[in-house]
Design a binder for these strands. Structure first.
Lengths: 201, 201
DNA sequence: ACCGGGGCATGACATCTGTCATGCCCCGAT
DNA sequence: ATCGGGGCATGACAGATGTCATGCCCCGGT
């Protein structure tokens, strides 16, 4: 019997995935949680065989949770299950120690297979996504540039960003300019967009 | 037996929801499709009692599909099931003739209830969302302004927008300025953001 | 000890953006 | 018939934005 912990913030989707997995003879869902921090706690308590983790979650994202869980429960395997097949997500998830990466658009039948394979020590990754991840290379942005792009997504002005990050306006403009250059964009919005699409934010 | 048609673009989520609904004694999922156009076709073919429709779907969105389905199969009831509880979505869905509106964060147990209530002719709406919808009022934007905001989200420059929409740059700036004023924003990015959050795009 | 990269800052400059006034056309409502 | 709203356009202007050069500090690698 494979014991699975399910972390997914949308309650209804979590319940539905639980129902789907419970149809399998050899799989039990031992717990379901709504954020990464709860996933770490639940993993320590239930010591599941496989942790199914969404990436976009409140409180703590799935990638950070992956690292925490594996350090506390080394016997567990982490299978990332996310909406967006962003190359940067895949890379960061694997770096954090995940054993698999499945997007929510795959056939339902494959989910149980992925869980079994991951449990058996195999690595499960969508081939197309792996290629995309290698092609696009890794994140060229510095930490500051990521911060500023994240903040710029909301439509804040340079003055706002400067205040929030306690920097001079000139410095903010410099970082923005640098990020725009590195992403090949033509303004901050486009830069934020491409960075987001690549999973760099 | 309540016959349900399921329209949801993420294959895995669709399968999971199907599994969840199939646990109920009185509910059968007669078909599952991945976009609005397919939903219209499947509704005509299967004539389901209830159509569960996601909003964000390729080819045709769930709100457009709602109107089409109801005109072709007036006996069907439409229950919108979506990730985002945007006020504008709710209003547009109800205007299109939907009988219910459920966000993906509700408790799994409530889904079957909602299906049954909708089948029985009742209207199912999250009370908080209904209040938010009334408070925020309806879309103040003109069609052009929506178009331009949608395009501006990608980070395009004024010149790009002008070319794509076959307008002069000055006109694009006027529409942008007007949209920025109506949304109470301080630049195009913020305007696009608030418009998106309210479900106006 | 030296070098390079990242972070921070300033100042100057060209360009882009947002605003406003003005005017034209079309259409539906009064 | 007139009025008002939406769409379209132009021109002008202030302020925001993106670029660039320059310089300082700190740190890790050689």
């Amino acid at each position: 019997m494979i014991r699975v912990l399910l972390a997914e913030d949308q309650h209804l989707v979590r319940g539905a995935l639980s129902a789907l997995l419970s149809l399998e003879e050899d799989i039990t869902v031992v717990a379901g949680v709504a954020d990464g921090a709860a996933a770490v706690a639940a993993a320590a308590e239930h010591r599941p065989d496989v942790v199914l983790l969404d990436i976009e979650m409140p409180v703590m994202d799935g990638i950070t949770a992956t690292a925490r869980i594996l350090s506390e429960v080394p016997t567990a395997r982490v299978l990332i299950l996310t909406t967006f097949g962003r190359p940067g997500y895949l890379r960061r998830a694997m770096d954090a120690g995940a054993s698999g990466f499945v997007v929510k658009d795959t056939e339902p039948e494959r989910l149980a297979d992925a869980v079994r394979k991951v449990r058996a020590g195999q690595v499960v990754v969508d081939p197309d996504l792996a290629v995309a991840s290698l092609e696009r290379g890794q994140d060229p942005l510095t930490e500051r540039e990521r911060q500023i792009l994240r903040a710029a997504e909301h439509g804040d002005t340079v003055a706002d960003l400067a205040k929030r990050l306690c920097l001079s306006e000139g410095t903010v403009r410099n970082h923005l300019s640098s990020a725009i250059g590195k992403t090949g964009a033509r303004n901050r919005a486009e830069a934020a967009r491409t960075a987001r699409e690549n999973g760099w934010l």
